[in-house]
């Protein structure tokens, strides 16, 4: 009986390893080929080991072609600011809904949470029209506002759940000491919610960073264009036939989400709760 389970465990390990190798192959392909020159890639075989490292040339090519650096910085800005603002606004609302004396708590919650229910395809035409009318089309502020608004519902959901778990006694005793509502929000709720706030930040930053739809719809010039829309210009019919440069762009544009991946991967081993948009 024991040898039976040992054997089947070995078989499973081998099969899984095969699949794991298959899953990992594209990464090897990307790393090997992103440092080649275009000529080397086109004339040689893609499995050949690179003869030299032409990262700088490839980087210059993508920077010229799609304003890579500007897209990268734009997305960092959108990700950092929109996510922070969304967490701030959502935490205020979550605090009001979970701890303050207001009427229709469920109504307010559902009103804000309804933002995640519809697919984003519902929003692009109206927002595009609205932005064209008020001159926010193709502007940084415009994209920041959209990303902030769309991050709020998820953050509200996570933070409200967490806020409900904060012991009432803590709030009561702070009230006895004469703390104002706002003081309690800052010194008890926000202070205790560091972990869920971090989770919101990582998930929502990743979402903003990876967004393609709003970037495509609401920006046109490199000044406002986020990174994924810039990258999408490298692919498809209007794209490039410089494969190594495209692969280098893919690596560089994955750096922020890769770091987030490392953080999350560590927490996943402790059964980190996850939700996706």
């Amino acid at each position: 009986m024991k040898s039976y389970t040992e054997n089947s465990r070995k078989t499973i390990t081998i099969l899984l390893s095969l699949f794991a190798f298959l899953w990992f192959l594209p990464f090897i392909y990307v790393v090997i080929n992103s440092v080649k020159t275009r000529k080397e890639y086109n004339l040689g075989e893609f499995w050949d080991f690179p003869k030299g490292v032409s990262i700088l040339e490839n980087y210059e090519y993508i920077n010229d072609r799609i304003d890579f650096m500007m897209g990268f910085m734009n997305s960092l800005l959108y990700g950092a600011i929109a996510t922070t603002l969304a967490i701030l606004f959502a935490s205020l609302a979550a605090y009001a809904i979970s701890a303050l004396n207001i009427k229709g708590k469920m109504f307010w919650f559902m009103l804000i949470y309804s933002g995640t229910i519809f697919p984003f395809q519902m929003y692009i035409i109206p927002i595009f029209r609205m932005y064209s009318n008020v001159d926010l089309y193709d502007s940084k502020i415009g994209l920041l506002a959209v990303y902030t608004a769309l991050c709020i519902p998820f953050c509200l959901f996570v933070l409200r759940n967490y806020f409900y778990s904060i012991p009432k006694e803590l709030v009561e005793s702070a009230k006895m000491d004469g703390a104002s509502d706002f003081k309690i929000y800052v010194s008890i709720f926000m202070k205790m919610a560091k972990a869920p706030i971090a989770a919101c930040f990582l998930f929502q930053f990743t979402w903003v960073w990876n967004d393609l739809l709003f970037g495509l719809t609401l920006s046109k010039s490199a000044e406002a264009r986020p990174i994924m829309s810039s990258l999408s210009l490298l692919s498809g019919a209007s794209g490039t036939n410089d494969v190594p440069s495209a692969l280098l762009a893919a690596i560089l544009a994955s750096i922020p989400t890769f770091f987030i991946f490392l953080v999350l991967n560590k927490s996943f081993n402790y059964g980190f709760p996850t939700t996706s948009k």
Partner: peptide, 14 residues
């Protein structure tokens, strides 16, 4: 406390 979230969600989503 609800105002910023409600305004943004109402303008962009609802």
């Amino acid at each position: 406390y609800l105002v910023p979230s409600v305004i943004l969600v109402v303008i962009f989503c609802i």
